[in-house]
Amino acid sequence: MASALDITAFAADDIRGIGTDPNLLKKEIPWPRVLSDGEKRIVTALGDIIIPADQYGPAASAVGVPDFIDEWVSAPYEAQQDDLKVIRAGLAWVDGEAKKRFGKGFADCGAAQQVAIVEDIVKDGTPARKVGYNFFKLFRDRVAGGYFSTQEGWKAIGYTGNMPLSEFPGPTPEALKHVGLA
């Protein structure tokens, strides 16, 4: 039993994943991105309809959400690979729908045209909803998660924590009043 074992053999098979002992202080994405330029343009356009620039903060594309979507669907894990299938098919379907209706790809349509397609997807009883709704909900949730986890997203959603405090003050008087505890 005293002979040396091949101790490197166990590190090789997860080479494209995060690994079990990554440097937690540094964000490194070891896997190659899989979305094409064309797919990324659709992700950007659709993402900005889901999270537009408005009084609450910048649009999704302004805080790197399209890149996050690409990072997510490119990951080598089963859950993300399942998302890739749904999202890739959904992007192709959205693009086809734009071509059918407006004669050009989704990313090249005007804002009103893009919104019209999205509104059809989320409206009850439309043919577009039947095909596109599950994709849209999944994509929308990923975009929202990607957005609200950024500093700009924190402002938009109302997260004010992650700040060192000398004492934990508990709820403010206004907060206590708001919930009927004042």
Partner: peptide
């Protein structure tokens, strides 16, 4: 103090972590 945007996959659970 890192935000989840400072992590791969926004810090999601994976088989590795």
């Amino acid at each position: 103090f890192q935000s989840n945007a400072d992590a791969p996959l926004r810090g999601a659970n994976t088989p590795d972590k």
